[in-house]
Design a protein around this nucleic acid. Structure first.
Lengths: 252, 252
DNA sequence: CTAATAAATATGTCTAGAGATGTTGCATCG
DNA sequence: CGATGCAACATCTCTAGACATATTTATTAG
């Protein structure tokens, strides 16, 4: 019973509601198995496709995920913390604690795949890096994984006129990474701009990040500027939104 | 024809692929109507539910949106720009242009709904604002709309011990907003921390923002600190991800 | 010419099945 | 005791309908 009252909302919505409420109330905790299609069919007396639709709602919301042949399970959210500005962030402003428990330490994100190449700059990159139509860029593509699970794709573009011949064009950029190399080349980044947006992943992104359906990606477009506002690097990052919390701190 | 070859992928996926490709190629531009259920049924010789599933894929990806009784249409993306730090941002580092064309000027975001109340602080808010179990907070809920369409929900929490009796507890907070009032009360915010994440909207969020399915929300949790790291405001913002690009700039 | 009305069209919800495919656990064999 | 195979179970894909509801368009009355 309990489903014969307000018939205004569709059945599948009401079933989804009850499951969502049960998750919120803690009846089903992270990782627990939810009632499956068959359970919902008998419990609510609906057809398979209707029960499916109800479970689909929760999956689309990112609350649950299904494993074929196994069942539908409640998802967990234990995000990594990415700090836009490392300084200032911790001690000084530690009084009001963060919402997201920062127990996410001793979890290590490592590079999984690296590919370096020199390519003709796409138009969008040319615009950002202030390049001409003929200019080439040094492209560094990387993937980061956390405990086997990929969480971040990053593609860096640097003007070939700047990077070619340096360690930036090698897979191993040496201590300090490309920013240390840029500094040695007289183009030390002194300012950064990051643009953030979010959307659902493309097919390719979903595959590369092995994202479960119903999870968006966060896109970060970072431009690094040397002195005199000269752009020296453009970095396009794609993050699994379920794995990250971004943090920015700044003074008034 | 054209659907009897590689039968490895499900039919609905292949139909979705062909539509996605057609959108990418420009066959269907933003706002255009896509082939509907009936069209796909006859074109690919599938059942209604299968054609529906294919269209559902595109809607989940945020590529298309359906209007009941009218059809399925390609979605557009014309984001607003939200600057985390207004200073520094424009002139000084304007050499490398942004990816997202900033033609979004002369579009005005206005407050649509305001509600002010004094409530017992939820636990999460207590933790952030460093309050005890009995303390109450002044809660300001606002909704912002852009040309009739809601784009942002914001809920501010301030310690009642600070805000009660001041203009902060009124709907109209006067010139300069609550930060000016806080300054008058000797609690001028000098530092901000913003935490950003993204996920699919809840039912309530989707309704309040009238979000089309397949669009995530961006959550910004901002904490304002007065001197000595004292947290004085906690602001919980929910943004329609299809309407916003966030921008942060900072020095190395 | 305008406004109300009806018809055609489109998506939304739902049923009752079927076969395909992946997972899990148990029983059996070596 | 370990490995293999199999059966039970779970989700996934798909069909062929039905009725509901919102929109658009064409028609008709004023």
């Amino acid at each position: 019973m309990a489903s014969t009252e307000g018939d205004r909302r569709p059945k599948y919505q009401r079933i989804a509601d009850s499951l969502r409420e049960a998750i919120r109330a803690g009846t089903y905790g992270p990782g627990d198995r939810l009632p499956g299609e068959n359970d919902l069919m008998t419990a609510h007396g609906v057809a398979r496709m209707t029960a499916r639709q109800a479970l689909g709602v929760l999956q689309n919301e990112g609350l649950a995920e299904s494993r074929k042949g196994a069942g539908v399970f409640v998802r967990a959210f234990r995000p990594l913390r990415r700090q836009g500005i490392q300084r200032l962030a911790r001690e000084q402003w530690g009084a009001g604690r963060s919402i997201w428990s920062a127990d996410a330490e001793n979890r290590r994100v490592v590079v999984d795949q690296v590919a370096v190449s020199e390519e003709v700059a796409p138009e969008a990159v040319r615009k950002v890096l202030d390049l001409g139509g003929e200019d080439t860029v040094c492209v560094r593509r990387r993937r980061y994984v956390l405990e086997e699970k990929p969480v971040l794709l990053a593609t860096s573009y640097l003007p070939a006129s700047l990077a070619a011949g340096s360690a930036i064009a090698h897979e191993d950029t040496g201590p300090g990474g490309i920013y240390a190399r840029l500094a040695e080349l007289g183009s030390r980044p002194v300012h950064f701009r990051e643009e953030i947006r979010s959307r659902m992943p493309t097919k390719e992104e979903a595959e590369q990040l092995s994202i479960s359906p119903g999870t968006p990606v966060i896109l970060i477009h970072r431009t690094a500027f040397a002195d005199e506002g000269r752009p020296v690097e453009f970095n396009e990052m794609t993050l699994d939104a379920a794995s990250y919390v971004l943090e920015y701190g700044f003074d008034a």
